[in-house]
Design a protein around this nucleic acid. Structure first.
Lengths: 369, 369
DNA sequence: TATCCTAATGTTACCGGCAACATTTGGGGC
DNA sequence: GCCCCAAATGTTGCCGGTAACATTAGGATA
């Protein structure tokens, strides 16, 4: 991989570290006004307000029976000392933390990182922090080791943001002491309802292609061990069947442009389809490249579609027709599901934006063969 | 460290519907074999071994003076009860946690997410967990709110993984109680050493273009508020100057393909350069698209280069000449720097792979104008 | 005004580890 | 065999909250 880097440091009040560069941290030394060295505890507040620490707790939790006068004083003390609860201490007694562990894979990819982004945002809004552990999902042992690590950290729940069979297996084996949830794009049996891609996306995509006259399709899928890949492949197939069309085949790739390229490069002299449906936009990019090198024009000779609608897709050559996927909402939903498990409440009806078909220039009338 | 892994792409999943996917909460049955309901504490272990809890602690920390016989028994008890330290409790007393807060932006972008990935991996290998907070960096108030949240969570340190001026400002204002470190690609004054891009990458890139006969260059940069964008722009300029060449201008974009497209689309009838140096590959993709729509051929009419070497770059039309950037190592280094700050040890000499020039087909001999 | 009862507030214990200090060993020197 | 001291191990207290239980205070009642 490449390289390059830079960095620079910064530093706190008390750390006499050797920091090379310097970033303003604490210009002055004697902080009188704001920062007291150690953060205030409920005991400090109690002393300040002239009450017991328990009363402070009660005020903090809006306990009903507290005399207005007392509450007033406590609130003032809280304000004056700029009290912030120590979440660590709280977790220790309550046994509940406010952190959610999230396992993910290949964070560089647009999908997973978008899901993570959404999950992190939702977690934050719900008062949680998301601990992200990115790992090599092909190694069950590594996944289990990661789960073990998460356990020690006393999390409120564990989330699997992107998942393949290994992850499912590791999750199945793990003996969680906290709620755990696997977010997946797969339909049954993992999800009560079929995914938007299955119900809306692929049918719309196939419809679009069929109306352009295409009758022969080829699918370049993701890795078989991935639930999302299987699901998309299945959605592809069933959408074709629903229209009485037939797939000329499915080639498994690994979501990358390279694998899309190789899938097409590996075909014989003739391409057995007029439309190539890639499982994601990256793969489609590789397909476009391979077709270009074969001297085939898109969409005049072959139509190509992707899934995801990554920002770059609109700038491919040609711009890619694809299915939008709302990753961010997926991430948010996953967190909400987990939170509902944690609260033993019924799972909220999550809604995802429908998987919309975005038609660009990579699809056109089927070529006469 | 860096496993190079050419990646196999991957991709997330979508949680379309509510459907409690799979969850494993403790079946709450009688776990006999492995999992005891509550995890064992040092007190449990002490009882099991017939010693005091403090002796257990000593064994755990390899305290010197412990009779072999005693140690033996404690070790056995630890094993038997499958003891795992409760990190929360430990943090409470020691005042040090094993979590690092990381602020980042636009996690969907390849650069930031790769940095995050590397940082997460390094953190894990060092026994830490990375708490990622992804936020809108343009809002100083939001950054400060996030920092506040992080503070409550009692972290061992705080890291800014991708940074612009707002982030710097917020960091400067924040009164950290723990070490904090800003990872950035910028050279002085933020980094002791100039970045690899400045010393190696851009000179090599400009050299390559100059040898192809290019004399007129255009730079499509990242957003001005981003340190990395400024740094790359500066590296570009100084590399040109070093060869006595001159830049025809710098247009600021926002790292996206769209901004690359608009930068070129917004130019007048003539493009004032034979080589366009984009600040990153995405921007370059947009540039390629815009040139294509103008009927200009790459590299026959104009040469285009990027920076980052994202996996897709090799499949652009045409495949992109670019500078490799080792984001993962950047992330790892940032964590190491932070850890050294935390330990009051001298900052480790971090090494990054040099920024290598990857020549593909988007650059060629300068067109006669 | 004495009595009760509940509202209001205070005290104690505990979560699980760690550290300071206290106490018990055991082996060498005499 | 006795003493002594360092080695080996034990006890106590504390980190900052929360919860259970205890106590006090004040108004209503008699």
């Amino acid at each position: 991989m490449g390289r390059d880097a830079t960095k620079q440091a910064e530093e706190p009040d008390q750390v006499p570290a050797p920091a090379p560069a310097k970033l303003a941290a604490d210009p002055a030394s004697g902080d009188i006004a704001s920062g007291n060295q150690r953060p205030a505890t409920i005991y400090d507040v109690a002393r300040e307000a002239g009450v017991s620490h328990q009363t402070v707790t009660r005020v903090l939790k809006d306990y009903p029976s507290i005399r207005p006068h007392t509450r007033e004083r406590v609130l003032e003390a809280l304000e004056r000392l700029d009290y912030r609860p120590n979440l660590t201490a709280r977790s220790l007694t309550t046994g509940r933390s406010h952190r959610i562990g999230a396992l993910t894979h290949e964070l560089q990819q647009f999908g997973p990182s978008s899901v993570a982004q959404g999950a992190a945002a939702q977690a934050r809004e719900s008062g949680y922090l998301l601990d992200i552990v990115s790992l090599d999902m092909s190694d069950v042992a590594e996944i289990e080791q990661a789960l073990d690590l998460l356990h020690q950290h006393d999390l409120a729940g564990v989330l699997a943001l992107s998942s393949n069979d290994e992850m499912t297996e590791a999750f199945g084996r793990a003996r969680f002491r906290v709620p755990a949830y696997i977010a997946t794009e797969e339909d049954e049996p993992f999800s009560a309802h079929p995914s938007e891609l299955t119900t809306v996306g692929f049918p719309a995509l196939v419809n679009h292609l069929a109306e352009l006259g295409h009758r022969e399709f080829l699918h370049v899928a993701g890795p078989e061990a991935w639930m999302a890949a299987r699901n998309r492949a299945r959605a592809y197939t069933s959408a074709l069947e629903a229209r009485g069309l037939h797939s000329a085949g499915t080639i498994h790739g690994d979501w990358s442009a390279r694998s899309g390229y190789e899938a097409i490069a590996g075909l014989g002299r003739d391409i057995p389809a007029t439309a190539i449906v890639a499982a994601n936009d990256q793969t489609a990019l590789g397909v476009l490249r391979a077709l270009h090198e074969r001297g085939l024009k898109v969409p005049e000779d072959v139509s190509v579609t992707g899934v995801d609608d990554i920002p770059d897709a609109a700038y491919f050559t040609p711009p890619l027709t694809t299915l939008q996927v709302d990753f961010e909402t997926q991430g948010r939903n996953a967190v909400q599901q987990l939170l509902s498990l944690m609260n033993h409440s019924t799972a909220p009806e999550t809604t995802t934006l429908p998987s919309r078909l975005v038609v660009r220039r990579s699809t056109g009338p089927a070529a006469r063969r």
